[in-house]
Design a protein around this nucleic acid. Structure first.
Lengths: 214, 214
DNA sequence: GAACTCGTGTTGTATATACAACTAGATGCA
DNA sequence: TGCATCTAGTTGTATATACAACACGAGTTC
C-alpha cells in the first residue's frame, strides 16, 4: 500500500476481521511503534512514508546516484569469470573452499571519470546466470536485487592507501587515500554476494542524514 | 539498574502500583519492544544489556566502543575555547557569522594509542556550560546527549590524506589515509553541534549490519 | 466572509476477566 | 545420582466495557 494512504478504522477492522477492538488496537499500536503505520488520534491510521534512511545502510545504487546528480554513468567490464574459491573467499562467503564462485571486476565512471572499482564475488547458488548479464546496461546490484529478496546487509568502511591496481583504475597516485566500502548481502538464507567497492577519496564521500525517533 | 537484573513480576507491580495487570503488562511490553527490557514467558522480566550496535547511523560513542572491546579509553584535551565564528563555521552551524561558538579539540586513545581526533563546535544556545565540563571523565557526546533530545543526525564519511596536524596527533605519516567522519546533530530545533572525527585509516573501520524489513 | 459551536468518528487509555504457554525449581522415584 | 514429573509462578493473548482526547467537517451566528 502506498505511503500516506489511509487504512480502515479500528471499528471497521473489528467488523471485517471479527476480532475485538482491543486486539486490533494493540496490533495497530505495535505496527505504529515499528514505524510501519502512523496514527493520529481523532484523525485515523495511515501507512507510514518510506523510512528516512541514509545511504550508509541502504543498498546504495551507484547508477541511480550518479543519474540523480544529473551525470552520465558508464561501466567498464574488466573481468567476468568463474573460479574455485580460495580459503579467504570461502570464509568471506561462508561456502566450502574450492567450490566455484562467480567473480567480476567493473569500473564505474561518472562523466567518464572513474568513481568506483567494484570487485565482486557471487554465490552461484544464489544467481546461476550472473555471468551471462551485460553489466554495461544493468548493474550487478540491480541484477542481484531482482534475483532474490534482500534479507541482510553488512557494511564495513575503511580508508586505505591505493595499491597499484586501484590507483591505475581510479586515476590516482599509489598511496592516495581510497574509501573502501565492503558489502556483504544475505538472501534466501545464504550469503548472496560479497563486494569491495573502492572509491577515490578525493572525489567521493558517503553521506547520510536521519531523523531520530522520540 | 544493571543490565541483566530482574525486575518485579507483573503481579507484584500490580500490588505496588495499584494499576491493573493489563496496564502494567502493556507498559512492560512497550519497554520490551524498545529494547529496554527483556521478557521471557514463564521466566520473568529483566533489564536488557546495553545495546550492542556500533552502526553508522546510531550515535557512535567512542568511549563505549573502546570499553566494549575490553580496552582502556583515555582522552587528551588539547583545546577548550569560545570564539567568534567565521563564515565557514557559521554556515556549518546555521548561526550568524561572528556570534560566539564553543570549540574543543580532543584526542581519544585506545590503550594509549590515538584512535580519534575530535574537533567539535557547539552551539552555546544548546549547551551553555559546555566549556565547564571535564572531558577526561565524560565525553562531549555524553554531555550533549544529556543536554537535549537528539532529533536528527547527519553523517558524511570521507577518506582524506592526513595533514600535518592530524598526522602528528594520530601517530601517522603525513599523507597517510585518514577516515574522516563529519557529524552534525540537531536538537531543540537548532544545530547543537558539528564535529570532525578523524581516525587513522590503518587502525580503524566503521562497520554496520542490518536486517532488511520485508 | 469569518469565527465559533457542536457532533460524529476516530484513536488513546485503563480496567477486569479468562485461559494458554512457558520456565524453573521442587519433588518423587528408581 | 540421575531422571521424570509435577507445580507454582510468570508472561502471552484475547475479550468486553467504559470513558477520555483529539480531528474535522457541517452548520450556525455575527
Amino acid at each position: 500500500m502506498a505511503g500516506g494512504s489511509r487504512i480502515p478504522s479500528e471499528a471497521k477492522l473489528v467488523e471485517q476481521l471479527g476480532a475485538s477492538r482491543m486486539t486490533i488496537h494493540i496490533a495497530l499500536r505495535d505496527l505504529s511503534a515499528e514505524g510501519v503505520l502512523l496514527r493520529r488520534q481523532g484523525a485515523g491510521t495511515f501507512v507510514a512514508p518510506r523510512r528516512i534512511q541514509s545511504t550508509f545502510l541502504e543498498l546504495r545504487n551507484i547508477h541511480a546516484e550518479i543519474e540523480s546528480r544529473g551525470n552520465r554513468h558508464s561501466t567498464d567490464v574488466l573481468c567476468m569469470e568463474v573460479l574455485n574459491c580460495d580459503m579467504a573467499v570461502a570464509t568471506e562467503m561462508s561456502i566450502a573452499p574450492g567450490s566455484p564462485v562467480f567473480h567480476s571486476v567493473l569500473v564505474h565512471r561518472e562523466n567518464g571519470s572513474p568513481i568506483q572499482v567494484e570487485d565482486r564475488y557471487v554465490n552461484p547458488q544464489f544467481s546461476a546466470d550472473y555471468l551471462e548479464q551485460d553489466f554495461t546496461t544493468i548493474t550487478p546490484n540491480e541484477h542481484l536485487m531482482a534475483a532474490g529478496p534482500l534479507e541482510e546487509v553488512e557494511h564495513v568502511v575503511q580508508a586505505i592507501p591505493a595499491d597499484e591496481s586501484n590507483s591505475a583504475l581510479l586515476d590516482m597516485k599509489a598511496g592516495d587515500p581510497v574509501l573502501l566500502l565492503r558489502r556483504r548481502t544475505w538472501s534466501r538464507g545464504m550469503i548472496a554476494s560479497s563486494a569491495r567497492l573502492a572509491h577515490p577519496g578525493a572525489r567521493f564521500s558517503l553521506a547520510g542524514r536521519m531523523s531520530v525517533k522520540h
